[in-house]
Amino acid sequence: MPEKTTSPTELTAQYITQVTDDLDRNVKEQDRIRGEITSLQEQLPALQHDHTVLVNMQQALGITGPPAEPAIAPESAAVPSPRQPASAGPSGRGKARKTTAAKTTAAPASPVAKKPAARAATAGKTAQPTLVELIRRHLAEEGEPRSAAEIAASLGQAHPERGIKTKVVRVTLEGLVAKSRAERSKQGASVFYTAPDAPEPAADTEATEEDTVPDPSTA
Score class of each variant (00 low, 15 high):
103 K>L: 13
205 T>Y: 11
100 T>P: 03
86 A>L: 10
121 A>W: 07
140 A>V: 14
113 A>H: 06
15 Y>L: 15
188 G>K: 01
202 A>V: 07
111 P>E: 02
29 E>Q: 12
213 V>C: 06
183 E>L: 14
135 I>Q: 01
169 V>Y: 00
168 V>D: 10
106 A>R: 08
77 A>V: 08
25 R>T: 03
153 A>V: 00
180 S>T: 05
164 I>V: 02
90 P>E: 03
188 G>A: 02
211 D>T: 14
146 R>W: 00
127 A>V: 05
65 G>S: 01
89 G>L: 10
87 S>D: 12
152 A>Q: 02
160 P>S: 00
104 T>H: 12
84 Q>C: 11
140 A>Y: 13
90 P>W: 07
198 A>V: 15
140 A>N: 15
91 S>T: 11
82 P>V: 13
216 P>W: 05
124 G>V: 13
59 Q>G: 14
114 K>P: 00
18 Q>Y: 11
31 D>M: 13
7 S>L: 12
180 S>K: 05
215 D>W: 05
116 P>Y: 04
123 A>E: 13
71 A>R: 12
69 E>T: 13
185 S>A: 12
124 G>M: 11
28 K>D: 08
107 A>E: 02
61 L>S: 06
30 Q>V: 07
186 K>D: 11
129 P>V: 06
170 R>N: 09
213 V>F: 09
183 E>N: 10
172 T>N: 01
168 V>G: 01
175 G>F: 09
38 T>S: 10
199 P>Y: 06
74 P>N: 09
40 L>D: 05
4 K>S: 11
182 A>N: 01
130 T>W: 00
113 A>Y: 08
37 I>P: 02
212 T>R: 15
82 P>G: 14
155 L>V: 03
195 A>H: 04
119 R>Q: 12
148 A>M: 01
43 Q>Y: 06
206 E>A: 15
216 P>C: 04
207 A>M: 12
14 Q>N: 08
100 T>Y: 05
118 A>I: 10
95 K>M: 14
132 V>E: 12
11 L>F: 12
70 P>Q: 04
197 D>S: 15
177 V>I: 01
1 M>H: 11
97 R>Q: 10
98 K>C: 05
211 D>E: 13
138 H>R: 10
109 A>H: 06
14 Q>T: 10
39 S>T: 14
214 P>M: 04
217 S>F: 03
94 G>R: 11
110 S>M: 14
219 A>H: 07
69 E>K: 07
92 G>E: 03
209 E>Q: 09
172 T>D: 00
83 R>W: 11
138 H>P: 02
70 P>A: 09
90 P>C: 02
65 G>W: 01
81 S>L: 04
101 A>L: 13
135 I>S: 02
200 E>P: 05
152 A>C: 00
72 I>L: 12
23 L>H: 00
203 A>T: 09
58 Q>N: 09
142 E>C: 08
182 A>Q: 00
144 E>A: 15
81 S>R: 03
139 L>R: 05
40 L>G: 00
39 S>R: 14
152 A>P: 02
176 L>Y: 01
188 G>C: 00
26 N>R: 15
119 R>L: 13
135 I>M: 03
80 P>N: 01
107 A>C: 01
38 T>H: 09
96 A>P: 04
116 P>D: 07
42 E>F: 09
79 V>I: 15
213 V>I: 14
153 A>L: 03
161 E>T: 08
5 T>P: 06
